[in-house]
Amino acid sequence: METILVTFGRTLTGFFVLLFLVRILGKKQLSQITFFTYITGIALGNIAGDMVVHRDVKLIDGVTGLTLWMLLTMLVEYISLKSAKARVLLDGEPTIIIRDGNILEKAMASHKLNMDDLSMLLRNKNVFSIKEVEYAILEPNGQLSVLKKLDNEAVTRKDLSILSVPRKYLPAELITDGKVVKKNLTELNLTKEWLQNQLRAQGIQSLEEIFYAELQSDGTIHIDKRDSKGN
Rank of each mutant, 00 (worst) to 15 (best):
T3N: 12
L5H: 05
V6Y: 04
T7E: 07
G9C: 05
T11E: 01
L12D: 03
F15Q: 09
F15T: 11
R23G: 06
I24V: 14
K28W: 00
T34M: 14
T37W: 00
T37N: 15
Y38W: 05
G41I: 06
I42P: 09
I42D: 11
L44Q: 02
N46T: 11
A48Q: 03
G49E: 04
V52H: 01
V53N: 09
R55L: 13
D56S: 13
D56E: 12
L59V: 07
L59R: 01
L59P: 03
V63L: 12
G65W: 00
G65F: 00
L66G: 01
T67S: 15
T67W: 04
W69A: 15
L72Y: 08
T73M: 11
M74N: 05
M74W: 06
M74L: 15
L75D: 08
V76I: 14
Y78P: 03
L81R: 13
A84S: 13
K85A: 12
A86S: 12
A86T: 06
R87V: 02
L89M: 14
L90C: 14
D91T: 05
E93Y: 07
P94A: 10
T95I: 09
T95P: 07
T95V: 15
I96T: 07
I97Q: 02
R99S: 13
I103S: 10
H111G: 13
K112D: 10
S119E: 09
M120W: 02
L121P: 07
L122E: 01
N124A: 15
I130G: 02
K131S: 13
V133H: 01
V133E: 01
E134A: 15
Y135T: 06
Y135V: 10
I137A: 06
L138R: 04
S145R: 05
S145M: 09
K149Y: 05
D151R: 14
E153W: 00
A154H: 03
V155N: 06
T156S: 15
D159S: 12
I162M: 13
L163S: 09
V165C: 08
Y169L: 10
L170H: 02
L170R: 12
E173C: 11
E173R: 07
I175E: 03
D177Q: 12
N184E: 10
L188T: 00
L188F: 00
K192A: 07
K192C: 02
L199R: 03
R200L: 13
R200N: 11
Q202A: 08
I204N: 06
E208Q: 12
E208A: 12
E214H: 04
D218H: 05
G219V: 04
T220K: 15
T220F: 08
I223Q: 06
